[in-house]
């Protein structure tokens, strides 16, 4: 093993550990995150971390085709975030913190029917509405 390889492999190990740590922290935010936007931000960040992982694996294996995978993952992640933003806009704010704070921005009347509609499609809507299960 030459000096160059040694430097590279130790740096790779360290970076993988650091990335794993940040992955766990982000997952903690996804699970805990009090509101839906918090979870979406954390998921967006998760995509970034996974792209970092892919880059590290590309260096480790010397297989540069991984870059294309990273780019397409970035594209999918961006589209997913945009779709989530549209979803937040469409379903409104119908969960946990809504009761605690006085609703300043959204007038109360339009919120009620929206919430009913959102909860009626709960089975198909996936993990994003898991906060409502408590209600």
């Amino acid at each position: 093993m030459t000096a160059a390889q040694m430097i590279l492999s130790s740096a790779l190990w360290l970076a993988l550990v650091v990335l794993g740590l940040s992955f766990l922290l982000t997952v903690w935010r996804v699970i805990k995150g009090p509101t839906l936007p918090d979870r979406v931000v954390a998921l967006d960040m998760l995509v970034g971390i996974v792209i970092g992982f892919i880059a590290l694996i590309a260096i480790r294996t010397g297989f540069t085709l991984y870059i294309d995978i990273a780019i397409s993952l970035g594209l999918v992640g961006f589209l997913a975030t945009v779709a989530f933003a549209r979803f937040i806009l469409a379903q409104g704010r119908g969960d946990e913190t809504a009761e605690k704070e006085a609703s300043k921005v959204i007038p109360a009347p339009p919120l009620a029917p929206k919430r009913k509609r959102a909860s009626s499609r709960k089975p198909g809507a996936g993990p994003a509405v898991s906060g409502k299960a408590k209600k």
């Binding site: 430097i7 590279l8 130790s10 740096a11 790779l12 360290l14 970076a15 650091v18 990335l19 740590l21 940040s22 992955f23 922290l25 982000t26 935010r29 931000v41 954390a42 960040m45 970034g48 971390i49 970092g52 880059a55 590290l56 260096i59």
Partner: peptide
């Protein structure tokens, strides 16, 4: 190695910030 470590460091900082 420097680029990798700095990149991983920024990712960690972002996660801690999160």
């Amino acid at each position: 190695a420097l680029l990798i470590l700095v990149g991983a460091g920024f990712a960690l900082v972002a996660a801690v910030g999160l």
